[in-house]
Nucleic acid binder design. Structure first.
Lengths: 212, 212
DNA sequence: GTCTATACTGAGATAGAC
DNA sequence: GTCTATCTCAGTATAGAC
């Protein structure tokens, strides 16, 4: 009977009771900790024990909020997708499509540097399957994907993005940069600041490796 | 007692007995199957049960060849790195650095399409740690990395690759393309052939997303 | 050296008191 | 709804027969 994501997306008209707000606050805390652990270790290596310890609650209590580890991961990913969408919505729409895409990728990589990127897109089939059978997740994925696709289309029509490749190729390429391992490699080398590495990523993504 | 990678790297002068050759052939079969499973599910989700079943031998026998799952993964990665290096060595050295890099990436993505890429670079710390404490692996990694770095340097000096970014940025960017999830996304869409997707990857990698 | 059978461990999930 | 204690099972690794 957890309130869960249903109430997330459609807040009731009536004000929440103190207990409900406390419950939701705890749920947010769980998702925050889950994001950290998922980012650090990935889905399989994040144990519910570790998560409970990180949040400071008992393992059993996790299951009052989320019915399984998979559903918890789905909630974590859903929240991320909603945030991505929010980033796109709040952007100044007078900016060029390319600069909006760059700005989104910058935000995403900053989130990742801060350890808040669950990084599930790159994991295995069983998790993917669990995600895709979660209605909230697929809805959020569709919404964020559509918003991003629209931006890519705009950029292509405006002549800012190349037109000799199919739009999905550009879309997935941008999407994949958010979980690109080169980000970790470059950060691990310790030679550059996070912001420098982010700008490197943007440069190689949009302008490629070849000399122009 | 397994012959293992030591004999791999320095074959003895004496010819191998029939039993030894059989043993090594089985070891190769294990690594082939391991590559497939690692590619499909990743390290954590590949169980030794599955692997033994795929090879058609008993689980216990695996431990006569490799002392642990981690060492087995290290052997798999080592073999891959040696093959990458071999690709570089056998290339026509009169070709431009850029076309040699493209050709290497093409080979790598074809290997991946065929399910032969263990994809371990993107996994967690515990595996990475186990790999880095394996001498054969670190040697192979160093060799392949140096060969690749040399090629990148050549390309930059020849003016084929951009010079406004540090060389390691270019190197890691190319390296990361071999485990780029966008490859899977594009293949899964079913709209293009593997070869088309590979060329898309090369195009976005070297020329970027922006219109030139 | 390969097999079958088993010990041991970690982790997901549940039961029941409060 | 949260806690402690426990169940169950998958998976690594090992033992022992042949």
């Amino acid at each position: 009977m957890p309130l869960s994501s249903a109430r997330h997306r459609e807040p009731p008209a009536a004000p929440l009771s103190f207990r409900d707000r406390q419950f939701l606050a705890r749920e947010e805390a769980i998702l925050d900790a889950a994001n950290q652990l998922l980012a650090q270790r990935g889905f399989e290596l994040m144990s519910m024990d570790d998560l409970a310890a990180a949040v400071g609650i008992a393992k059993g209590s996790l299951y009052k909020h989320f019915e399984s580890k998979e559903q918890l991961a789905a909630a974590s990913m859903t929240r991320l997708l909603r945030r991505i969408e929010a980033q796109l919505v709040q952007q100044d729409r007078k900016l060029s499509a390319r600069s909006r895409l760059e700005s989104l990728l910058r935000w995403t990589l900053r989130e990742r540097a801060a350890g808040r990127m669950p990084l599930l897109p790159s994991t295995d089939q069983s998790v993917q399957q669990a995600l895709m059978s979660n209605a909230s997740y697929t809805a959020a994925l569709s919404d964020a994907g559509n918003a991003l696709a629209e931006l890519v289309e705009d950029g292509m029509q405006a002549g800012e993005l190349r037109q000799d490749l199919p739009a999905p190729v550009l879309l997935f390429t941008i999407y994949a940069r958010s979980c690109d391992p080169s980000f970790d490699f470059l950060r691990a080398s310790g030679e550059w600041s996070d912001e420098q590495v982010i700008e490197f990523m943007l440069a190689t993504c949009f302008d490629g490796l070849a000399r122009k």
